[in-house]
Amino acid sequence: MAIADISDRRRYLAQGNVYLPHIAIIEKIIDETPGVRTFHFNFKDEKLREEFTFDSGQFGEYSVLGIGEAPFCISSSPTRRDHLEFTAQRVGRLTNALHRLSVGAEIGFRGPYGNSFPLDFLEGKNLVFVGGGIALAPLRSLIWNVIDNRDKYKNIDIIYGARSPADLCFKYDLDAWDKDKSVSMATTVDKGDESWTGREGFVPQVLEQVAPSPDNAVAIVCGPPIMIRFTFPVLGKLGFTPEQIITTLEKRMKCGIGKCGRCNIGNLYVCRDGPVFTYAQIKNFISSEY
């Protein structure tokens, strides 16, 4: 995967300064699970609202001014551009502050940063999406993107799991994909409850059961590190080569543009050279640094 070409994105710099956020307004808040919310937002500046574009897989740095800033992927699809979305789990100071905001509140946004899913490479191929928990967010941007251009791609398999039925995110999307006859969907939970009638089992196990063929296929994987570590060997067993496996990674980040240092995996910065990588790119380092 090439280093992101940023030449066409400079126009989004606020006052010419890459660290300055644009002001955006929260338009809608959706409770995904007890600790996870999706925020719909739009830029305050009308010109930017018109001009802003991004690619599936890219991320932004979101601010609650006075509290701080953190990176989240843009979880909506660039094919559906009347607003932007991001999804955040309430875990730290910044995400707690985000979760206290209501519709109409102002946040800061800078981006889009990083590279994106390689649509040209995916075209004409069978796509296998493997996601876990809140990490469906970046995959979801790509899934809607390919569904909105359905003719360009062959089979679409989605394998998604969460710890429990209550931890499943984007249930409205899961329902829509379930009903979509052109998409094959397997949803699982580690452990069900009394009302759960679906699959039980960890995502890598379900992937092994579904056993998608590696022929003319690409697997796109995103989940917590533990899921990623167990999913790669299963894909290998199914016959996927490291070049046929794409993932998007998450690390602690501050600057988002390859300067502050902390998000490296070997010589690669997740913010600058990723967040989208092939397994071939990172397999030397991933066992010990991710």
């Binding site: 001014l65 501050k254 300067k259 502050c260």
Partner: peptide
């Protein structure tokens, strides 16, 4: 070495990053 952290400070309604 160039690694840096980014933080906010807020006093009433006026803040600094």
């Amino acid at each position: 070495c160039y690694c840096f952290d980014i933080n906010d400070e807020l006093i009433k309604d006026r803040g600094t990053r």
